[in-house]
């Protein structure tokens, strides 16, 4: 049952690479690490990560056609949805995936709370998690404006008004978000820039730290009766 030659060649290539990169040690540490007996609830973080990957793939695809410019934004989105092959699917995944990701991140957080997994030594994992949740919200907020339709416009009016609530700095916070005293093409530009460059960079960095900590500290055992 051994296609021996092939297996050998694969192993040799693996050895060759391992000697120079040490990949086996890392592979074992990340994917073959021991975990305690866990439940399906422990998959919620991975589920969030999976939707995140989907958001990246579909989001990158959307930028091939989407134009963040007041004259064209709505037209390009309409074209993607109604005419382009599978545009409805790619946009649909990105649209619903955004909601799914928020939901999954929150469920994942609830799981962490219920299992007490935020306690020593995982406080920093929790803190990076809080950052991730806020970033996820920011993705939703900036992405919502991009279709440039009535709903997008008014949601952003309302959302940025909220920014103007704090005393003293409120007015400027709102102007900063809008790139001026009211919604304009500059608002669209900066929301797009935030949505596709600023937030993804921050998110990738934070996810890396989050996962590093998860691997480093190991996953929590479900709490026992006498603990």
């Amino acid at each position: 049952m051994q296609p021996a030659a092939n297996d050998d060649r694969l192993k040799q290539t693996g050895d060759w690479l391992d000697e120079r990169t040490g990949w086996r040690g890392n592979w074992t540490a990340v994917f073959l690490r021991k975990i305690p007996k866990v439940s399906w609830a422990y998959t919620l973080g991975s589920a969030t990560l999976f939707t995140l990957v989907l958001q990246f793939v579909t989001g990158i695809l959307l930028t091939l056609y989407y134009v963040p410019e007041p004259q064209q934004a709505y037209a390009s989105v309409t074209y993607i949805t109604n005419e382009l092959s599978f545009g409805w699917l790619i946009r649909g995944i990105h649209h619903w995936g955004a909601s799914a990701m928020v939901l999954l991140a929150i469920l994942h957080m609830v799981r962490v709370i219920i299992y007490g997994a935020y306690k020593y030594p995982r406080e920093v994992t929790w803190l990076t998690g809080v950052g991730l949740l806020l970033l996820t919200f920011a993705f939703g907020f900036t992405g919502y404006l991009l279709p440039w339709d009535q709903r997008a416009y008014w949601a952003t009016v309302v959302g940025t008004q909220i920014g103007s609530v704090p005393p003293v700095v409120g007015g400027f916070t709102k102007d900063l978000m809008l790139g001026g005293p009211e919604i304009s093409g500059l608002t669209l530009s900066r929301f797009f820039g935030a949505h596709v460059w600023v937030l993804p960079s921050l998110l990738v960095a934070l996810v890396a730290i989050h996962l590093f900590l998860v691997v480093r500290n190991g996953i929590t055992s479900p709490p026992k009766r006498d603990e």
């Binding site: 989907l54 793939v57 579909t58 695809l61 091939l64 056609y65 005419e83 382009l84 092959s85 599978f86 545009g87 699917l89 790619i90 995944i93």
Partner: peptide, 16 residues
């Protein structure tokens, strides 16, 4: 499931 539609998507405006 994502990859095949993605190819149709990317080539869309060039084909039509």
């Amino acid at each position: 499931a994502v990859g095949v539609p993605a190819i149709a998507f990317v080539t869309g405006s060039a084909r039509t």
